[in-house]
């Protein structure tokens, strides 16, 4: 695995994403859902909302890095608020 140049932060990052996917899969099996219509006027499932959250969060972090600075904890906070909004209204 040496060639993959793992570091602790990136390992944690991927572990969190892996865990999210696992939780969503378990939820999908235990509590099947029907897609719902949100403010984007399109049907979304929980998986779709997770995807929108993760993709949007990546852009939020990049925008923060480009416009504000390197302290990404604030950006992470915004990402959480964004995630809540996506899961509630999209």
């Amino acid at each position: 695995m040496g060639w993959m140049a793992w570091t602790l932060p990136t390992a944690i990052f991927f572990a969190v994403i892996g865990a999210l996917l696992l939780i969503m899969s378990v939820l999908a099996i235990r509590y099947p859902e029907t897609p719902r219509m949100g403010i984007l006027r399109m049907e979304t499932t929980r998986g779709d909302r997770l995807f929108i959250t993760l993709l949007g969060s990546a852009f939020i972090c990049l925008a923060w890095l480009g416009l504000v600075g390197e302290n990404l904890w604030w950006a992470l906070g915004i990402c959480f608020v964004y995630a809540l909004a996506v899961f509630r209204w999209v």
Binding site: A5, T7, P9, F14
Partner: peptide, 23 residues
């Protein structure tokens, strides 16, 4: 893709040795 993410936060001068560069 995971390897690229790992590379993007580090620096290397070859020889498969990497140094943490953060963001």
């Amino acid at each position: 893709l995971m390897t690229v993410v790992n590379y993007s936060l580090q620096d290397t001068f070859g020889n498969n040795k990497f140094f943490w560069a953060g963001l």
